[in-house]
Design a protein around this nucleic acid. Structure first.
Lengths: 156, 156
DNA sequence: AAGATATCGTTGCCTATGCAACTAAAATGG
DNA sequence: CCATTTTAGTTGCATAGGCAACGATATCTT
């Protein structure tokens, strides 16, 4: 377990960390200014949009949308109240609920995207050259997928 | 205003975004497991640690710690209650308050750092080669500093 | 097949933090 | 030098989201 942390890496971390918060705040602020829902709504809707039949189990949507199950449950309440998704019972397992994207949900996604895209372009992409973008995708792909590895079964 | 968003850049954004949340959650979770304060405490304490005389005005600390002034005000309440900082009035301007790091604050910073560093190493640095780290620092430095530019004076 | 255990989603409760309104203290300007 | 405006920090109120406990259902064990 490398608790080693070279100077360059620490520097990279610090800039990564602070740039993220600033980017995030700037984009959220643009969305709010346009009277659009926040990124957490977008994330959940988009995951459903990508899913087969535009629906996912609650707990899987939670994972995809980077929330806990309880957090997701409440988010789904709001999305459902707004008519953006519908809860559907699973016919074969009485415990599971599906969240299914509605037409209105798709429409909302389409209203959010232009503003979100503009934010990504303005605050992020404008400062990243194409080869750098490829590199970032590669590096963060590795970092992210390390979390997907099978969790060590108790004592690994 | 390039609302243009090339494929590579979008891909980089998505991975950047999701890897950040996972990293952040993992590190926070490690800190909580070690009975240590969260990153927001660390960030504020560390900014004070770097500051001349280990103190900053509230509003400047807010900027540095990536919080709003109101959020910072409450954070400072807790840090003060824990004896990690002290509020000090400014002798020349009755409106300003300084937050000043105490010895106990420094000590807390030192208790947090090993766990934080291990998290950065394990979840982030382990997946980043040295030249990549340099590149990340450069790119995120550019992104971050774009936010420091003089704000456009009303109509720019 | 019945009891024990595990899993899924929801809910109670708590904390963090943002916005807008407020107070006090400067700064400005007439 | 008083009146207005600006600035710094704090506070009321609201929302987001986590943890742990719960109820319902499914799976496993004997």
């Amino acid at each position: 377990m490398s608790s080693e942390l070279p100077r360059q890496h620490l520097e990279a971390w610090r800039k990564y960390y602070s740039s993220f918060w600033r980017l995030f705040a700037a984009i959220e602020s643009d969305l709010a200014a346009a009277n659009l829902p926040s990124l957490s709504w977008y994330d959940a809707l988009y995951e459903l949009y990508l899913a087969p039949e535009k629906r996912l189990r609650m707990s899987q949507l939670a994972r995809s949308a980077l929330l806990t199950r309880s957090g997701l449950s409440r988010l789904v309440d709001k999305l459902e109240k707004g008519g953006l998704i519908a809860r559907r019972a699973c016919p074969t397992d009485g415990r599971v609920q599906y969240a299914e994207l509605t037409g209105k949900g798709v429409e909302t996604l389409r209203r959010i995207w232009p503003v979100y895209r503009a934010g990504i372009a303005k605050y992020f992409a404008a400062h990243v050259r194409e080869p750098e973008a490829r590199q970032l995708a590669a590096v963060f792909g590795r970092i992210s997928s390390a979390f997907d590895e099978v969790p060590p079964t108790a004592v690994s």
